[in-house]
């Protein structure tokens, strides 16, 4: 399973998903975060594969239009999003190196 890297893009996407609360469309997330589709969707894929995001399809009210995909943070995703603004903890790294 792909690791989530705490990049600026990941943090801003998690912030947008947290602020939005309910189900969000990809284009809205793109506008809010400034992420292009080529950056946004790989991030959404990774978050979903990690179980941080749930998805569902929404039928278009307009006939002939394809259904749209919606995204919402899971409980785990919300918990992770809360830590997104914090710097990485030093203690586990130091203990890993045998310094503590």
């Amino acid at each position: 399973m792909a690791e989530i890297r705490w990049t600026r893009q990941t943090r801003s996407l998690l912030a947008a998903l947290t602020a939005g609360g309910d189900w969000r469309h990809g284009y809205d997330l793109s506008r809010e975060t400034g992420l292009k589709s080529g950056t946004l969707y790989p991030l959404l894929i990774r978050l979903t594969e990690r179980g941080w995001l749930e998805t569902r399809w929404e039928d278009s009210p307009e006939p002939g239009r394809p259904p749209r995909h919606l995204y919402r943070l899971t409980a785990e995703g919300k918990a992770q999003a809360l830590t997104a603004g914090r710097p990485p903890a030093a203690a586990p790294v130091l203990s890993r190196l045998g310094w503590t």
Binding site: G26, Y27, S30, K36, S37, Y41, T55, S60, R68, H69
Partner: peptide, 27 residues
């Protein structure tokens, strides 16, 4: 494939012109 379809479906939300082309380019 589902993700590509999801990204393409958002084209309907993008306004015409540059934004639409940018979105399509990303997909």
């Amino acid at each position: 494939a589902d993700w590509v379809r999801a990204a393409l479906a958002e084209l309907s939300a993008a306004p015409d012109g540059r934004a639409r082309m940018d979105w399509l380019w990303g997909v």
